[in-house]
Simulated scan of single mutants.
Amino acid sequence: MTTKIEALELALKNALGEGAAITVALGEVTVVVKASDYLASMQKLRDDPALRFQELVDLCGVDYQSYGEGTWDGLRFAVVSHLLSIEHNWRVRVRVFCPDDDMPLVDSVTSVWRNANWFEREAFDLFGILFEGHGDLRRILTDYGFIGHPFRKDFPISGYVEMRYDPEQKRVIYQPVTIEPRENIPRVIREETYGMK
């Protein structure tokens, strides 16, 4: 007798073939596909009657630059999607790595799931991942004058610019960050009876 996860793993292997790496860990199934196969694989995951992943639950970007305390030697950026099959009551995680770290680019899946629109805009805004074929790829969380992508591991904590209202010019202006970096030193409590009544 096969378990539900084994049945899902077999259905995924039959639908995606050898082009996808399927792993099962902690009761969850993860599929890693190549960037060149990404759009076609997502279409198969939705349309294959044995799978029927009708719902895209989430799509996000990931920056693996310092993953594993610097031991990661793979590609830097990935797009991770979580899919749900209501018909079969199972879930799968799909990961695709962007082949170029300098210009992270994968196909858009907005033609497969319309709700991918905002998810892909968020991944673009926060990580700088580009989605080929996306009809309206622009910032969604940061303002249009924002410089950089704040969820990248190499983005400075204080940012590059700050904005403030200038009463003389009577408008909001951008200027280089004026925050002085500081080091917080935690207060050490040395009383042996601290917290006791």
Rank of each mutant, 00 (worst) to 15 (best):
F155A: 03
E192H: 09
F155Y: 15
A15L: 11
L12T: 04
G148E: 09
K44F: 02
V31Y: 08
V57C: 03
P156M: 14
W90L: 06
G148R: 09
G195K: 05
F97C: 01
L137N: 07
R139N: 07
G68K: 15
D102P: 00
L105A: 09
W72I: 05
H149C: 00
V80P: 01
K170W: 01
G135C: 00
E120T: 05
L16Q: 06
A21D: 13
R164E: 12
V33M: 06
I147W: 03
L45P: 12
S158V: 05
I22T: 11
R182Y: 12
V57T: 10
R138Q: 11
P167T: 08
T178V: 03
A15T: 15
T30A: 12
E168S: 13
R46I: 01
S158L: 13
S158H: 06
N14T: 15
E87G: 04
L39D: 01
E87H: 12
H134W: 06
Y160G: 04
V188R: 13
V33N: 10
M163H: 11
G27I: 08
L130F: 02
G68P: 12
A40W: 06
F97H: 08
V57K: 02
G128N: 05
Y144Q: 12
V161M: 11
V109M: 02
P104S: 03
K44C: 03
D63T: 02
S158M: 09
I185N: 10
K170G: 00
E9Y: 05
D107K: 04
R138I: 09
I86R: 15
V31Q: 06
D107V: 01
F119M: 10
S85A: 11
Y38L: 08
E162Y: 05
D166N: 15
C98E: 02
V188C: 03
I5C: 09
D37L: 06
E122F: 07
L56E: 10
G70D: 12
G74Y: 10
L126F: 00
D63V: 03
S41N: 08
W90C: 14
A21R: 14
D48L: 08
A20S: 11
G19K: 14
P186T: 00
K4D: 15
D100R: 01
V106C: 04
F151D: 02
E28T: 14
V112W: 00
I147Q: 06
S66L: 10
S41I: 02
R190Q: 04
I185S: 09
P99R: 03
D48Y: 08
T178G: 08
Y160Q: 09
H149P: 03
P181A: 05
K34G: 04
A7I: 11
H134N: 02
Y144F: 14
R190N: 06
K4N: 14
S108V: 09
F146K: 05
F77H: 08
V31L: 07
I86A: 15
L141Y: 07
